[in-house]
Simulated scan of single mutants.
Amino acid sequence: MTLIEIIALALIQGITEFLPISSSGHLILPSALLGWDNQGLAFDVAVHVGSLLAVVLYFREDILRLISAWLGAVFKGQHSEHSRLAWWVIVATIPAVIFGFAFKSAIEVYSRSALVIAITTIVFGLLLWYADAKAKQHKNIFQLNWKSALFVGFAQALAIIPGTSRSGITMTAGLMAGLDRESAARFSFLLSIPTILGAGLLVSLDLAASEHAVDWQAMLYGALFSFVSAYLCIKLFLTWISRIGMLPFVIYRLLLGVVLLVFVFS
């Protein structure tokens, strides 16, 4: 890859990982629309590491509180709203793990196309609009229960289909479960930590089994630019989401979907 391709793909990963517009879908687009070569396993690992470091750094205080509270609940029986939230993150991660292992290969073979991305971009964009416009947004993140967490978890499992958007579908489910916008976004971001970590480990195992040479410079630049863009994206999104709502992202998804359909059928 050229330096421009490395920077562009890293920025795409960092920005779209946490916005409700699909990172996997956007990472497929340069090769489909511009003829760029596939970025490869090593680069996938690098940009996921960058995104993971960004969300961990941003939520470092929350993560420490959740871990401490969870350990206190498990070993000392000291239950609190933070320990319950930690359990809900674990519960919501389980469906993605199961579906990821069961259907990852089939999804990669049959759904990584511009047509699939176009359809899922539009369909799940409309679902996001419906949830944002119609759902009762009266709960904060600590008012989640295990049923709502599992509902968000099953929604997240759909994100193995390119174009769905992991953050988009989890925010949609969070809104439908009654969470306010910021709480839905925060739960989605917290839920991304074990999900990105698991996905990164799987890709790392694939990389370890691969015989291809690793471009360490590309990995370094990819991780760096992914980290910076992801961190800024999280910060700005949480600052603005309560005021602007999901409509700008819905409009973007619909426009992107239409452009892709034109490309597919032209």
Rank of each mutant, 00 (worst) to 15 (best):
F101R: 05
F103M: 12
A106L: 15
I107M: 12
I107R: 00
E108L: 10
R112P: 08
L115M: 12
L115W: 05
V116T: 15
A118E: 08
I119L: 15
G125L: 09
G125Q: 08
G125C: 11
W129G: 11
Y130M: 11
A131Q: 01
D132I: 06
A133M: 05
A133G: 00
K134Y: 15
K136F: 00
K136C: 00
Q137H: 13
H138F: 06
I141W: 03
I141M: 08
Q143D: 15
L144Y: 02
N145W: 10
N145C: 09
W146P: 00
W146L: 08
W146E: 05
A149H: 06
F151E: 05
F151T: 15
V152D: 01
V152R: 04
F154N: 04
F154S: 12
A155D: 01
A155T: 04
A155E: 04
A159C: 03
I160N: 01
I161R: 04
G163N: 12
G163A: 13
T164A: 13
S165D: 10
S165W: 12
S165T: 09
G168R: 04
I169W: 04
I169C: 04
M171L: 14
T172M: 15
T172E: 12
T172V: 10
G174C: 09
L175N: 12
M176T: 10
D180N: 14
R181I: 07
E182G: 02
S183N: 08
A185E: 03
S188I: 10
F189T: 10
F189H: 04
L190D: 05
L190P: 07
L191R: 08
S192Y: 07
S192G: 13
I193R: 08
T195G: 02
T195W: 01
G198P: 03
G198L: 02
G200K: 01
L202F: 13
L205H: 11
L207T: 14
A209W: 00
E211M: 12
H212T: 14
A213F: 06
A213M: 09
V214F: 10
W216T: 12
Q217T: 13
M219P: 09
M219N: 09
L220T: 14
L220A: 15
F225M: 11
S229D: 11
A230Y: 06
L232D: 01
C233N: 03
I234W: 09
F237M: 13
F237K: 02
L238W: 12
T239W: 07
